[in-house]
């Protein structure tokens, strides 16, 4: 459990961090360190340099304005889970963040690190997808914005370029009649999601569904949206029967099988947890 040698940088601004990354192609960004440090200690990763962005003030903080919620990349899971702003504007994110790891992990791990690492079995990617998050990114070529649906490219691969840093996550604040839920079936060893279901539904005054999204962690190489199943709920009364019928034919493309669970069982979990998440979201709407 002794990592290889590496250089350590601690920039004080995003610009400085991006410049260091541009100058050091073998460098890695260090945020909470809860994914990177363990793989370095196992010598599965040996970056030549670490760029510690933990002291950059611009990457901290949660704010609400103009109908959107903005969360700095270095905000911890614990801050998100317990933030009144997040609980009001994006309760799904608070619920998912509160289920990550254990208390120690939640005090160190960050939303930016989580989404950039893009572990499909972690809890935030599906929530970010389901909430329609926009990810703000800074690089040596300037800043840009990427939608969550374009951000997760493949297993632990994102749309980030080597010299780019995720700086902020922006989420449209939940409107009236909206309910959400995150339901997780955790692997007993790692606590990661064998399957995690993130659901958001919106109902009109008459109770019929005007919008729905249902996304999953843990089932395939990236967090995925079950868009067909969700859209088939629009216009329904969101009854248990409507939910079951929407999920009965659902099949997540390229479901993963491994020593923990077969692809087929993950599909079953997705149906079971998806239904549970939708029912809970409905009851909260």
């Amino acid at each position: 459990m002794y990592p290889s040698k590496f250089d350590y940088h601690r920039p004080s601004s995003v610009q400085e961090a991006v410049q260091i990354l541009a100058d050091n192609p073998d460098a890695k960004v260090l945020a909470g360190g809860h994914s990177l440090i363990p793989v370095m200690k196992l010598r599965l990763a040996a970056p030549a340099a670490l760029v510690d962005i933990g002291r950059i003030d611009a990457l901290q903080g949660i704010s609400r304005s103009n109908g959107s919620l903005r969360i700095g990349a270095c905000v911890t899971y614990n801050e998100i889970a317990n933030s009144a702003d997040v609980q009001a504007a994006a309760p799904l994110l608070a619920e998912a963040a509160g289920q990550i790891g254990d208390r120690q992990v939640r005090y160190r791990g960050t939303i930016g690190g989580n989404l950039s690492h893009a572990d499909p079995a972690s809890d935030l990617p599906a929530a970010a997808l389901a909430l329609g998050a926009t990810l703000h990114v800074a690089g040596s070529g300037g800043s840009r914005s990427v939608s969550a649906s374009d951000f997760f490219v493949d297993l632990m691969m994102t749309a980030l370029q080597a010299d780019e840093i995720l700086t902020e996550v922006e989420i449209p604040a939940a409107g009236a009649g909206t309910g959400s839920a995150y339901v997780k079936f955790e692997h007993p060893a790692s606590g990661y999601a064998l399957c995690g279901a993130a659901a958001v539904v919106t109902r009109d005054a008459g109770g019929s569904c005007t919008g729905a999204s249902l996304c999953f962690n843990g089932v395939s190489a990236t967090a995925v949206s079950a868009a067909d199943a969700a859209s088939s709920l629009v216009g329904s009364d969101l009854s248990d029967g409507a939910i079951d019928s929407a999920l009965s034919g659902m099949s997540i493309p390229d479901a993963t099988g491994d020593m923990f669970a077969s692809a087929g069982y993950r599909q079953e979990l997705a149906r079971a947890l998806g239904a549970q998440a939708l029912r809970t979201a409905r009851d909260r709407a």
Partner: peptide, 11 residues
């Protein structure tokens, strides 16, 4: 295959 505590589930 179950070579770490991520893979081997101690209760």
């Amino acid at each position: 295959l179950s070579g770490t505590m991520l893979d081997y589930a101690v209760p």
